[in-house]
Design a protein around this nucleic acid. Structure first.
Lengths: 192, 192
DNA sequence: ACCGAGTGAGACATTGATGTCTCACTCGGG
DNA sequence: CCCGAGTGAGACATCAATGTCTCACTCGGT
């Protein structure tokens, strides 16, 4: 019995395999189970022993991503202080999960309504609440709905992840580019 | 011989089939050739007569999307006037192509380097030039690279298309939401 | 040294999409 | 009216990925 209780029903092996899978699928979303197995340094049979099938693998990745995003929110303490600063902290904490997030988002678009993991709703609610809080604080404009700002947040994080991956943006600029555009926009403003 | 010369080597039938395919694949990127055929109201055999295979179909859609995006640029006259107004015009003209654009972008991420259609480079260059022009005019901030602004533009248009499709944003707000966020950001500014 | 759980490699069967082909049918021009 | 190009429906063969199974091997604990 080599299993040991880690985090939440995840053995150490599972987590490592999942990380490798995430790293690969993030770059090549259509990767084969065989490719995933090789990338994780294990045999295809063993991969199947961990995850019943490709579907189960993606679900597990979804679970991992959701956990990490929730953790990012917690660390960023998005309920505290000025909303714009909270957004900056959130972008910073989300950066490591960005590629996985963008994979899951595009993958989710394929789940045409079947049954969405309720984790996304909770996450959406958290991001949305942040923007709403900012509006109530008078820090954010009220003519852009929290729902749209949430959507835009995901979109920009995804775009940023791809831009970095393809070398069109330096990795060190990731946080700045996203936070600045999201908060301040492209237009040059007098107040800075 | 029912073929007639339209636009650019495209018969009328082809265009109509492509439009139907775009409408479907935009919603369900993994749709079967059979589903595409049904959606276009033709038989699978006929679909194959028009497009050698799924690959050829996607390439044709890419070509269609590129043409429409170039046309949108032309109509928006992105080389004229203040850059921020040009961006607004561009967003407005791009709106009808947004779903197709977002499909092609996510699809392109799968073409891992094989051979990219050079049309994208030309398009990127055009968008990028617009932002660079804005910077030179002093209208846009210079600390966000044109490359990133271009990427963010695509990302926001894609996010907007999905948000509208899922009903999270009203279709009539599409242009405003994107242009305002891209230009002015989320933060409430004193100058308005 | 033995033993057994877990593994990797490979051999299958299965499934779903794809591509090709044939064959009636239709519809429009001659 | 007839003819033929183009079509839709369906019958295949093909191919790739998947899922399942077996078998020999390894390595850690005893």
């Amino acid at each position: 019995m080599s299993h040991s209780v880690y985090s939440c029903l995840m053995s150490v092996d599972r987590i490592q395999v999942l990380r490798a899978a995430a790293a690969l699928l993030t770059r090549k979303a259509t990767a084969t189970m065989d490719e995933v197995a090789r990338a994780a340094g294990i045999g295809r049979a063993t991969l199947h022993r961990h995850f019943a099938g490709r579907d189960a693998l993606v679900r597990a990745l979804e679970e991992l991503g959701l956990q990490e995003l929730e953790a990012a929110h917690d660390r960023a303490r998005t309920e505290e202080g000025p909303a714009d600063e909270a957004v900056r902290r959130l972008v910073a904490e989300v950066e490591p999960v960005a590629p996985l997030l963008s994979f899951l988002v595009t993958e989710n678009q394929l789940f045409e309504g079947d049954q969405q993991n309720e984790g996304w709703e909770r996450l959406d609610a958290r991001v949305s609440a942040l923007f709403r809080r900012g509006q109530e604080q008078g820090v954010f404009r009220i003519d852009l709905t929290p729902a749209w700002l949430t959507e835009a947040f995901y979109g920009l994080v995804g775009s940023g992840a791809w831009a970095v991956q393809d070398g069109r943006v330096a990795a060190k600029d990731f946080q700045y580019m996203i936070a600045e555009l999201l908060l301040g926009g492209a237009r040059r403003s007098v107040e800075k």
